[in-house]
Write a protein that binds this DNA or RNA. Sequence first.
DNA 1: AATTGGCACTCAGTACCATTGAGTGCCAAT
DNA 2: ATTGGCACTCAATGGTACTGAGTGCCAATT
Lengths: 348, 348
Amino acid sequence: MVSERGLQVLQAIVQDYVETREPVGSKRIVDRHAFGVSAATIRNDMALLEDEELIVAPHTSSGRVPTDKGYRLFVDHLAELRPLSSAQRSAITAFLDGSTDLDDILSRTVHALTRLTGQVAIVQYPSFARANVSHVELVDLGGSRVLVILVTDTGRVSQRIVGTPADLDEGDIGQLRARMSVLVTGRSVGEGAKAVTAALAERRDQPRPLRLDDVLHSLLLVVSEELEEFRQDRLLLAGSATLARREDDFQGSIYPLLQAIEEQVTLLRLMGEMVADGEGLAASIGRENEAFGLSEASVVTGDYDATGSRARVGVLGPTRMDYPTNLAAVRAVAHYLSRLLEEDDTSR
Amino acid sequence: MVSERGLQVLQAIVQDYVETREPVGSKRIVDRHAFGVSAATIRNDMALLEDEELIVAPHTSSGRVPTDKGYRLFVDHLAELRPLSSAQRSAITAFLDGSTDLDDILSRTVHALTRLTGQVAIVQYPSFARANVSHVELVDLGGSRVLVILVTDTGRVSQRIVGTPADLDEGDIGQLRARMSVLVTGRSVGEGAKAVTAALAERRDQPRPLRLDDVLHSLLLVVSEELEEFRQDRLLLAGSATLARREDDFQGSIYPLLQAIEEQVTLLRLMGEMVADGEGLAASIGRENEAFGLSEASVVTGDYDATGSRARVGVLGPTRMDYPTNLAAVRAVAHYLSRLLEEDDTSR
DNA sequence: AATTGGCACTCAGTACCATTGAGTGCCAAT
DNA sequence: ATTGGCACTCAATGGTACTGAGTGCCAATT
């Protein structure tokens, strides 16, 4: 069993290792942390920690390094979030103040977070799976082109240009708009997709060709695609260049990281599977991300609220990261974001 | 002066070096390329090439490596574009077929290009500075929110949500739409911006408060912002993860590259300044990119046409890249893209 | 005048010690 | 339970020697 002091030793090891990137030995600990005991005693504790697989010695004769399990214990029980400095707090507000557009707010957020932590920052768009479609709009662009626009009540907008088989007049457009509107408006995105699919099926069974049916058909196809895309929430990322500075923390290559950043889907799933604590914070450490090809990386996330729907902000970095600082930063940004988006909602 | 054979030697050096990443010596050249002369002769030629600063020896006793100047000469006079295999050609069509939406087409393009070249691929959106605004649309979202949509005749759409001071009824919206439409529709984006600015100024001089003036004012502000953003064309990127595999080609760090990728502005300017040849192809090599912090990188671009406006596709990679292949791939993609977008235009 | 074989020279890379020192595990003493 | 002592391990460092690919130059050849 690991003693109370043993845990403090683990804490010291994590802190020192994160700071110096060098395996930490018993002597270092005695020097830098005021335990009232000798190096030999620390060594005994370290032997126990090693038995528990919380730390490991990279080479027989060198200091210890935390294992993923060690980081996990540290994060869950040992880490005290390091509150942000007032300068940092005001940096957040300075970054985020004065914008109303959702895209704009989130973009600023992700930049603020990467600056705050020095890590790759990630912001998840508020989930639209449950949000309702509030508007479908058709705009005639002339030249057999129609612009289809979808708006959800969370403020997200998506648009797409579709070619139509023939020129349509204002009346046609109006008719199409009305029929589409009935099918999708007011439903959640998921339901909307079902309604569209059903409408497509029904149209086939009912061979009474309305003049605009073909057009409606193709438009519904596009809407269906768009809804599908909506359902998969999106990510905003910033700071991926910082990874180049941390190459040494990734045995060999940062390729998996860059890969994951490019295929946002991976990160999306990863972040989706993480389980938040009471404060909405979560961390996924090293091997815990193995299924996503990110065994040497960690992700720290915090939940935020936006108009009733939840989403996450987070940072991605090497397993050897400063969890207290990153957790605190993520929490602060998530809080601020929640306030901003909820406030914003009432003021709208 | 460099002899005819000297140039062939340069060509051989570039080819071998790009392939093997190792400085190439006189013996290698004699072995792998059927020059009818001895190694000593090649050495004499190499000495001349070195005098001209076309090649350089990293270490006194090792083979030669092309300088940026050497690559430049190679690209300008020695490189024969390597035509794409039929498999590659059909890969392009397979990738790009069956989409009509501009965003979609360009996104597929950039992925095709990165797959084709193994480099970071870049696609520039067709320039909108000269494109005309074909539609301004206002959609009432309720709750004091209005969605402003701008469409250009090149197919680009931009939207933004704006808070309005008070609730507006359908009539108000219609009125606003009409007034905005007059100000912007049919003009180029640049002119549109001026018109908006003028309208704002005029409004101040003319103190006859119309009921909707305040709203119009804020809307115009947003439109103005959007136009400004439009003017700066945008980039689509793919394949940045491949850089992790080429770290060795970037003395030390790929940081500048990732940085440039993240701040698209740098790449945009760089690509903008490149001068294309008769075929629309251009290359910017190594130190030529010094002003952009990319002294160890090269960019190869090709121009494409879309509805009367031109833009570029390209790849970004280490100076030590396979120019013939990349030039050919870029050219092929640019051609195909031109055909697709022009075709598309007539069919629309 | 261009080409070539020959030759001395250079120097990165590799391999092979020997040395150093931080750190460990263990044990007997406290 | 803690500690000082001690033998041991092994990565890192540095020095030495060797190897070999490659060069520059020159005199001889075509």
